[in-house]
């Protein structure tokens, strides 16, 4: 899928994640801020990257503001944002 416009999904509320997706010139890129960055930063990035790969996205800048979301939530939010950014 090709990102054609900025899109967002999620909330800044506790146990959720706010995902913003933008078209990117140099491949996929993730900018993550998280209240549990030290503990789970790499895991969150992996979930986001896996989701991008699954959807065959190759030009996304994903800005993620995490407030302790579980992997399933992260995956769902990323998928929604990507689909909104591609329609």
């Amino acid at each position: 899928m090709k990102i054609v416009r900025p899109a967002k999904a999620g909330t800044m509320e506790s146990n959720d994640i706010y995902i913003m997706v933008y078209p990117n010139e140099n491949g996929n890129e993730i900018q993550l801020d998280s209240i549990v960055l030290k503990q789970f930063g790499n895991q969150i990035k992996k979930v986001i990257m896996d989701t991008l790969n699954e959807l065959e996205v190759e030009n996304a800048l994903v800005v993620a503001k995490d407030r302790g979301a579980l992997d399933y939530t992260i995956k769902a939010r990323v998928e929604t944002a990507i689909k909104r950014a591609c329609e």
């Binding site: 900025p6 967002k8 800044m12 913003m20 407030r67």
Partner: peptide, 12 residues
């Protein structure tokens, strides 16, 4: 967090 989400959504 609810206020911030809403205002960010509107700005976005």
């Amino acid at each position: 967090s609810k206020l911030l989400t809403q205002i960010q959504n509107r700005l976005f």
